[in-house]
C-alpha cells in the first residue's frame, strides 16, 4: 500500500467540480420546485379543499413511503411510456436523464416540504388570523404577508436540514448514469485506484457544505430569537 497522494485530487478537481456543480444545481432546483409545490400542497390541506386535499394527502403519503431511488426509476421508465400513450402513437417518448432527475427531485421533495409547512401552518396563532380579519386583509394578503412569512421563519431550520439531506441524496442520480460530486469521485477512484484520497476529498467537501449550512441555521435561529425575544 503506497502512501497517500493528494496531488491526484488536485488533478481530478475540475471533474469533481463539475460533479459538485451538478449536485448544487439539482439541489437548488429541487429546493425551489419543492418549496413552491410543497407550499401549495400544504395550503390545499390547510384550506381543507375537499377532493384536492385528499389527492394531495395520498400523494404525500406515497412519496414519503417510497425510497427516492425507486421514484427515480419509475419516472425514468414510466413517464416516457405514459407520455407515449398520451401522444397517441404508443411509442415511449424519452425524457432524458437530466430532466428526469430535476423533475423527480422537485416532486419528491415537495412531499417533504409540504409536511413541514403544513405543521408550521397549524402552529400559527389563531390571533394572527383574527388580527388580519379585523384589518380587512384579504385571504391572499393574510397568507402572503402574515401567515407564510411566520411559517417560513419558524420552519427554516427544519427546511434547511431537509435541504442538506436533499443535497446528499443527489448522489442517487448515479442510477440514471448522471454524475454528481460523489459519482465523479467514485468514477475517478475506479480509474486511478486512489479510493482513499478521492473519498476523503469528497467527504471534506460534504463536511464543509454541511458545516456552512448548520452555521447558517444557527445564525437564522439567532436572528429570529432576537425578533422573537420576550422581555
Amino acid at each position: 500500500m503506497n502512501s497517500l497522494d493528494f496531488s491526484i485530487v488536485v488533478q481530478a478537481w475540475p471533474y469533481l467540480w463539475s460533479g459538485l456543480l451538478f449536485s448544487l444545481s439539482l439541489t437548488a432546483a429541487a429546493f425551489l420546485v419543492g418549496m413552491f409545490l410543497g407550499t401549495l400542497f400544504a395550503l390545499v390541506q390547510h384550506f381543507e379543499l375537499r377532493i384536492l386535499s385528499q389527492l394531495v394527502r395520498s400523494y404525500v403519503a406515497l412519496m414519503r413511503s417510497i425510497p427516492l431511488i425507486l421514484v427515480l426509476f419509475w419516472f425514468f421508465f414510466l413517464v416516457p411510456i405514459v407520455l407515449g400513450h398520451l401522444s397517441g402513437n404508443g411509442r415511449p417518448v424519452p425524457v432524458g436523464a437530466t430532466y428526469t432527475a430535476f423533475i423527480t427531485f422537485g416532486l419528491f421533495e415537495a412531499a417533504y416540504y409540504s409536511e413541514i409547512i403544513r405543521v408550521g401552518l397549524r402552529a400559527v396563532n389563531k390571533g394572527q388570523f383574527e388580527a388580519c380579519q379585523a384589518l380587512a386583509l384579504s385571504t391572499f394578503d393574510t397568507y402572503r404577508h402574515v401567515v407564510l412569512p411566520q411559517v417560513f421563519r419558524v420552519a427554516s431550520p427544519i427546511i434547511l436540514s431537509q435541504t442538506i439531506i436533499l443535497f446528499q441524496d443527489t448522489s442517487l442520480v448515479y442510477v440514471l448514469s448522471l454524475t454528481d460530486l460523489l459519482g465523479a469521485a467514485s468514477k475517478l477512484a475506479q480509474l486511478n485506484g486512489r479510493l482513499v484520497e478521492m473519498y476523503l476529498a469528497v467527504a471534506v467537501v460534504y463536511l464543509m457544505i454541511g458545516c456552512a449550512a448548520s452555521q447558517f441555521v444557527a445564525s437564522l435561529r439567532r436572528k429570529y430569537a432576537i425578533a422573537g425575544a420576550r422581555r
Partner: peptide, 15 residues
C-alpha cells in the same frame, strides 16, 4: 371590517 377597528386582549401584533 375596514370601518371597524379592533384591539384584542392579547395584542395580536405581527411578530
Amino acid at each position: 371590517r375596514s370601518e371597524v377597528g379592533m384591539v384584542f386582549q392579547s395584542f395580536n401584533l405581527f411578530p
